[in-house]
């Protein structure tokens, strides 16, 4: 009780505004927070600390953990060729998926921002894959891309027959060369609607007066897009770029459901490798070390992008 009274007395806000009726909610507030705090401590805060410690041990869940210092990191960075392969695969997915998704999403959003009929229906259709279960999507894509009876190979055969060109459909899911594009296709189908919806919201926030003014000044459609729309939605582009980059770093389910990381590890991503180390090889320490390397990469990339945004992102003045 006395502590409560003292808190109330020393609270600067209360002193500043003595006539405003402000009860002290100290203990009540903690009651409201209790369930959330409990969850936060058990499932977020403690695991972050634990994960950091785990990255310095060798532990197969059966024997007690063994402190190995930096050995996990040293092994991964200098002696594990698979680690660099999965980093390379992840980089491939990042440089393909992120730009393609931004371009397709923006193009669709611009198209749907026009005064034409059926916008709502188009939006429902393009957004539909976003809410679907990736595994179901992967099953259909495996079917569509199947060399023997898939529609894609059928189209390619027909095209070859029609033009007489010596081309053959690739065996997408069993070829180390085509497995990554197959995963990219699934991801684009699944996520482009998301990018589109965010861009559409941004486009609707661009004031019409600016277009009118640009039009009066004789700017054509492309110039209006280049000099009015694009700068004004650049904060959205920046935001989408960041979250898609993070998403690409964390790619897992698409690769798992589509190819199980194969063939020959050609679609094994960093997160897939964390999963394998922890739950297939029972190397909890090694897996935690990969997770921290992943975190450092995500953090660095986000930081660099945030520093670079000054050059091309325009926030409204004031």
């Amino acid at each position: 009780m006395t502590t409560q009274a003292r808190t109330a007395q020393s609270s600067p806000a209360l002193r500043r505004n003595p006539f405003r009726w402000r009860p002290d909610h100290q203990w009540e507030a903690y009651l409201f927070l209790a369930p959330s705090l409990l969850g936060f401590l058990v499932f977020v805060a403690a695991p972050v600390v634990m994960s950091f410690l785990l990255s310095f041990v060798s532990w197969n869940l059966l024997q007690p953990p063994d402190w190995v210092g930096l050995a996990n990191f040293r092994h991964l960075l200098t002696r594990d060729p698979v680690f660099w392969r999965v980093m390379g695969n992840t980089a491939y997915f990042m440089v393909t998926i992120v730009p393609l998704q931004l371009v397709f999403g923006l193009a669709l959003a611009v198209a749907l921002n026009q005064a034409i009929r059926g916008i709502l229906l188009y939006r429902v259709i393009y957004f539909m894959p976003v809410v679907t279960t990736i595994v179901a999507g992967a099953i259909v894509f495996q079917f569509l891309l199947n060399r023997d009876f898939g529609i894609v190979s059928r189209v390619i055969w027909d095209f070859a027959a029609l033009t007489g060109l010596p081309i053959e459909p690739p065996d997408f899911l069993n070829s180390t060369r085509w497995s990554k594009p197959a995963v990219v296709m699934l991801t684009l189908w699944k996520n482009t609607g998301f990018t589109m919806v965010i861009y559409l919201a941004a486009l609707q926030g661009v004031p019409q007066e600016l277009y009118d003014a640009a039009h009066v000044d004789g700017a054509g459609a492309w110039q209006r897009f280049r000099n009015v729309t694009f700068p004004l939605i650049s904060p959205t582009t920046f935001f989408l770029f960041i979250i898609q980059m993070i998403g690409a770093f964390q790619l897992f389910t698409e690769a798992y459901a589509m190819t199980r990381g194969g063939p020959a590890q050609s679609t094994t991503t960093v997160v897939y490798y964390i999963y394998q180390n922890a739950f297939e090889f029972q190397r909890m320490g090694r897996a935690s070390a990969i997770a921290w390397i992943l975190f450092v990469f995500i953090f660095l990339f986000t930081y660099i992008q945030t520093r670079m945004q000054r050059r091309w992102v325009h926030y409204e003045a004031g």
Binding site: T7, S11, A13, R22, D24, H25, Q26, E28, A29, Y30, F32, L33, F40, F43, V44, A45, A46, P47, V48, M50, S51, L54, I246, F249, Q250, V271, I274, A278, M284, A287, S288, A291, W292, L294, F295, I298, F299, T302
Partner: peptide, 27 residues
């Protein structure tokens, strides 16, 4: 509600948004 440590706690919450799920998954 106003209570001691509110803003610091909220900031701590927000900070953890940056940490990927994969880091906390194993613990």
């Amino acid at each position: 509600l106003r209570f001691r440590g509110r803003d610091a706690l909220f900031l701590l919450y927000l900070t953890t948004l940056m940490i990927p799920f994969q880091v906390t998954m194993i613990p």
